[in-house]
Amino acid sequence: MANHYFNSDDLKKFPGISEFQEKLGKKFFDYYGEVFSEGALTIREKSLIALAVAHTIQCPYCIDAFTDNSLQNGSDEEEMMEAVHVAAAIRSGASLVYSVQMMNKIKKTTM
């Protein structure tokens, strides 16, 4: 057993998650493959969304994978950083919107 979490080599083992539950694993990877294929959104757009989400959920494996994937599909660093800012803005906005509750409470309970 490793004495630390998040070994970058573990990313390569991701397809192996089916080992302990083959049926569900297969369903997941079929779904995953379909989601990331060309559709109403381009592969490049999907990759940028995934990169932004990866930052929000703070998944180092996903950040590695979708940094490579975004570069491969023609995004540049400016676009990729903007996508991360979109994620960051939503994340900070989600915290700040709770301040309405704080403000409501303050206004109700103070003179």
Partner: peptide, 20 residues
């Protein structure tokens, strides 16, 4: 001709062509 600007493989050609 597109070739990657670093140590990564090229993505899908038709996707990249549309983007370019």
């Amino acid at each position: 001709v597109y070739n990657p600007t670093g140590a990564f493989l090229p993505g899908n050609q038709s996707t990249l062509e549309r983007e370019f």
